[in-house]
Amino acid sequence: MRRIKAAAVSPSALPLTVMLGVAVVDTATGAEFNLLPVYAAGPAIAAARGSVRNVLVMGGVAALLCVVFAAKAERLGALRMHVALVAIGYVTLAAVYAAWARLRTERRLVDVQEVAQTLEDVLFAPVPPTIGPVRLAASYVSASRATRVGGDLYDAVPSPHGVRLVIADVQGKGLGTVRCAAVVLAAFRESAPELADLAEVGRRIDSALGRRTDGERFVTGLLAQITPSGHLVVFSHGHPPPLLLASDGRTEDVEPAGPVPPFGLTALAGPGEQRDSVTGLALRAGDRLLFYTDGLSEARDAAGRFYPVAGRAGPLLRETCPETALERLRADVAAFTGAPPDDDSALLLVEFTPPSPPTRSTAPGAGPAHGAPEPPARPVIR
């Protein structure tokens, strides 16, 4: 959320300019017209941006100009001059009240903005650039101009079992979605670093939504875990699958094993229906994964076509550091749609970077050391 910034131009500049313009016209038209009441425009305009003191000063300047030009037109003490001074006085008093009310509202708005920004910073703290064997970069774009965040969320935390990630999208819009997002994040941050079973983390999130929300919203999401050896496990709850950008050049979706209801709706699943959809994958050094919400996949161009994530995002995310790669992706989406975003969008780019194994020295003339086989095949476990 952007803070209110002080204007670079003095709040007195415009009122003074207007009153000087009236003075120029008054001089040009002569005593026949005598625009004395029009000087009240000065304090009236000052109320829009100036302080109460500034409005009073502009009222004094307007009264002084009224007297000066009344004397110039030989109407000093005339009824027209007194009527103009009374009009300037009433307009100044009204402008003082308007400026006082505006300043009080602005102070309250600044307080609310500071509280909201603090809340947003606590709930949606930046992810660290590196956790264990992975590099991370995140990007968030809110469809609302008033806030930085909405119903989409992401986070990454270390655990004894590997790096754990969450990305999710709360159904609906408004403050209720932010509340649900906060509940999901709190449950994830509390359980993910400690619980051995990633599926249990999902059940904790589902339980928290049932206890702490009105139950009228559901949340699509992914839970993922990357071990130091590169074993990826993804639990899907009705969310778009992550995009794998393999180090060998392939681009493919990591599809779930089967459909599972979103968080908040798993209680509706029957006793024989699947409640967890887990996908396993062996990552290699340099592999990247793009986790995203439907604000990316459902972005449309002027013809109504959806943004082709695999076709356009893949080439953009392979080179440069993860942060720069996401910036390039955001720029490409903006060029594709040609319009501001109409939905929240969260992106999380993860690169697997295991530590390099120690090299073995060999005697001169000896062959290659044992233990350097070809990279293993990339198994997929579903």
Rank of each mutant, 00 (worst) to 15 (best):
L123E: 06
A224P: 07
S144L: 10
P358M: 04
G30T: 11
E351V: 05
V67M: 12
E298Y: 10
L123C: 08
L65F: 07
G230K: 03
P242E: 00
A299R: 01
R305I: 13
P357W: 11
A208K: 02
K5G: 07
V38E: 01
P43Y: 02
S297C: 15
L123P: 08
R300P: 10
Y140A: 00
F124W: 06
A310P: 03
E273A: 08
G150T: 08
V91R: 02
S142M: 01
T92Y: 00
G286L: 07
E190M: 12
F263L: 08
S229D: 12
A138K: 01
G202Y: 03
L16P: 01
A7Q: 14
V110P: 04
S139C: 07
L185H: 04
G174K: 10
R382C: 14
A70F: 00
A48Y: 02
A73P: 01
Q113A: 13
H239L: 08
T293I: 02
S144I: 03
T29H: 14
S144T: 12
P241F: 04
L103A: 11
K173C: 10
A41K: 00
H161L: 11
V141S: 12
D214T: 07
T29L: 15
P240T: 14
A70K: 09
E327K: 06
A363I: 01
S345C: 15
P133L: 07
R284T: 05
E106Q: 10
E194I: 15
Q225R: 09
P376F: 13
D342K: 14
G270K: 01
G314H: 04
L175E: 10
E114N: 01
H237C: 05
L36C: 08
P373G: 15
T266N: 03
A208I: 08
S229H: 11
A285V: 14
T251A: 15
A303Q: 11
A48L: 11
D111L: 09
A363G: 10
L56V: 11
S139E: 05
G77Q: 13
A125S: 09
A186V: 05
D253V: 08
H231D: 10
R288A: 02
I226E: 13
S144Q: 09
L123K: 10
P315I: 14
V184S: 05
V52K: 06
E200G: 10
T177L: 06
P373D: 15
V350K: 02
V157T: 07
A282E: 15
A303V: 09
R378Y: 05
R2K: 02
A257Y: 00
